[in-house]
Structures are given as structure tokens and as C-alpha cells.
């Protein structure tokens, strides 16, 4: 247990360093983009004086490094700052959008994870059969199509042709749960289709890998049923890689939604970041990236901890 605590603390420390690095990179990447918020707001007709005045008002006339550390010290005080474009509190902007993105990610995870793991197990169990091949071909096809294309296919069939689900998912805070499930179904399904293949293939591979081990042969010799061998003997040892791939895909569900959100007009973080980049609203982009990065790091950490916790050999390594 002691080992686990040290590991977690270590990882959190590293995570913070990574976050700092990421925010530096984002900040200076935005600096490289042509134009700033003052120019974007005032447009082509902006006189040099007007641009200078607006820059001074927004503090954009300060050197980049000063602005970065001003922003950074705000973060250390738990203050994400205010949007340059509309002077609104960024944490306020982020919270509702992040909730929406998180809700969509959970929705797709609830669809994708059980389906992927079950299909993976079954594919391993019936390895080489027609079932195995069909599942492989279908899931690989799904992952090979770009997600916006999947989205349009789903809209075409489930929305335009049969009218089962709405084509836009512009949910709001007062959308009821059942209406949410209905409205957000197509984007959730799109995301689920994109991530299922990866998880399914990894589960299958991990199980098949184990099936060649001597202890499985032993189990088979003593007469255990194939289902029992896979669930009781193989699965616990395959959990570590499965958890890893699941967490990786969960992170993708949160950070990779930009296109899907645009296609379905879903008010999440993806739309926010697109809006903010085009307006050169650096504090909002920074804050959003920070959220994305934190999600990635946290999920990776969780995955590592869980894989160690489920593997006694790693727990008692000396």
C-alpha cells in the first residue's frame, strides 16, 4: 500500500509539472498565431490608435512573459481569470460547458465500455469463428471512418430517414434527463462507435495472450469450461491492459469531441475552444486546455494506479 501512495504522490507532482509545461506551450503557440484579440475585435478598419487603446485596456500591451506569469499566478490562487472577449468569469463559462462534455463522455462510455469488453471477451472465446471475424471487421470499419462522417451517416439514417432521433443536440441546463438521453443519443453513439474498436481489440488480444499460458492449460486440463476459464482465470490477469486502454479512450471521449460537438451543435468544451481560438481569447483557450490536460493526466494516473492495484506482483515488487 505504501508503494501505491508514493506512486500516486509522485504522479501528481509530475502531472503538475506537465500542466505547467502545457500551459507554457499553449500560451506561446497562441502568441505565434497572427493577430490578437484587439485586432480580431476591431477588425480591418481598426486604426493603429484604436488597436493600441484596446490592447492597453486588455493588458495586451504587456510583454508576453509578463502576461503569462500574471495568468499563472492567478491559476495558483485558483482564479482562472476572465474572458478577454466578454469580460465574463472563465470558471463560470467552463463549468456549464464542461458538465455538458462530461455528460456526453459518460453517456458514450456507458454505451461503449460494456459493449467493447463483452465483444472482446466473446471474440476471444470464439477466436477464429465467423462471429470473431464479423465483430473485428465491423469495429475496425467503424474506427476507420472519420467521426464526422459517422455522425452524418447516423443523422442520415436515424434522423432524416426514420426520424428516430433529433439531428441537433442543443441541450440546455433545464433539459430533463430523459430528454437529454434522447437528444444526445446520436453524438454519444458516434463517439461510442469511434472508441469501441480499440477497446474491443485490446481486450481480445490481452485475453488471447493469456490463453497460451501454462496455468490456463492447467485449468483446461482440470476440466473448467471455456467461459469459466476466461472470466475467472484469464480476465483478472488481463485487467491491467484493459483498464489502460479504457482510460485512454475515456480521455479521448472528453478531449476529442470537437468535431462531433460542431456537427451536432452540442454546447460543450469543443465549441468553446474553437470559438476562443478564432477570437484569440487566450485566457479561455488556456483554461480549456488546462482542463483537457488535467483530464488526461488524471485518467492516466487512475489507470496506472488501478493496473497496479489489480496486479499483486506489481504491488509487492521489491
Amino acid at each position: 500500500m505504501h508503494l501505491l501512495v508514493t506512486l500516486i504522490l509522485q504522479r501528481i507532482g509530475l502531472g503538475v509539472v506537465t500542466l505547467f509545461g502545457i500551459s507554457l506551450m499553449i500560451f506561446f503557440a497562441m502568441e505565434i498565431l497572427p493577430g490578437d484579440l484587439a485586432q480580431e475585435t476591431l477588425g480591418q478598419s481598426a486604426t493603429p490608435e484604436a488597436v493600441a487603446a484596446l490592447r492597453a485596456e486588455l493588458g495586451l500591451d504587456q510583454p508576453a512573459i509578463t502576461r503569462f506569469f500574471q495568468w499563472f499566478s492567478g491559476i495558483l490562487h485558483g482564479d482562472l481569470g476572465t474572458s478577454l472577449a466578454n469580460k465574463r468569469d472563465i470558471s463560470e463559462l467552463l463549468v456549464s460547458r464542461f458538465k455538458n462534455t462530461l455528460a456526453l463522455a459518460s453517456y458514450s462510455a456507458v454505451i461503449a465500455v460494456p459493449v467493447a469488453v463483452t465483444l472482446g471477451l466473446l471474440a476471444a472465446l470464439y477466436r477464429g469463428s465467423i462471429f470473431d471475424r464479423t465483430v473485428n471487421v465491423l469495429s475496425l470499419s467503424a474506427v476507420s471512418l472519420p467521426e464526422f462522417f459517422i455522425a452524418y451517416l447516423l443523422i442520415f439514417f436515424l434522423s432524416a430517414k426514420f426520424g428516430l432521433f433529433p439531428s441537433i443536440s442543443n441541450v440546455s441546463a433545464d433539459t430533463s434527463f430523459s430528454e437529454y438521453m434522447h437528444r444526445a443519443f446520436l453524438p454519444a453513439l458516434t463517439m461510442a462507435l469511434v472508441v469501441t474498436a480499440h477497446m474491443m481489440r485490446m481486450t481480445r488480444a490481452a485475453i488471447i495472450n493469456l490463453l497460451a499460458s501454462p496455468y490456463i492449460a492447467m485449468a483446461r486440463l482440470k476440466g473448467a469450461s471455456p467461459m469459466r476459464i476466461i472470466l475467472i482465470h484469464a480476465l483478472p490477469n488481463a485487467l491491467a491492459p484493459i483498464i489502460n486502454v479504457v482510460s485512454l479512450n475515456l480521455a479521448y471521449l472528453i478531449t476529442g469531441v470537437v468535431l462531433v460537438e460542431i456537427v451536432f451543435v452540442y454546447p460543450g468544451l469543443g465549441q468553446l475552444i474553437v470559438d476562443s481560438v478564432s477570437k484569440r481569447d487566450i485566457p479561455v483557450v488556456q483554461a480549456t486546455c488546462l482542463v483537457f490536460a488535467t483530464v488526461y493526466i488524471t485518467l492516466n494516473l487512475t489507470a496506472d494506479v488501478l493496473s497496479i492495484a489489480t496486479n499483486p506482483r506489481l504491488m509487492h515488487r521489491k
Binding site: Y152, I155, S159, A160, G163, P166, S167, I168, N170, I262, V263, F264, V265
Partner: peptide, 19 residues
């Protein structure tokens, strides 16, 4: 008044009766 900036999504919304 709905904000839909993506032009395909707008046409979809009209065709599927969302707008």
C-alpha cells in the same frame, strides 16, 4: 433563435424539423 454555425448542421436541423 438557435446558434448553429456549421452549415451542414443547419440544413440537417431544417430537414429533420428541428428548426
Amino acid at each position: 433563435c438557435l446558434a448553429i454555425s456549421d452549415s451542414t448542421a443547419r440544413v440537417n436541423a431544417l430537414m429533420t424539423g428541428e428548426a
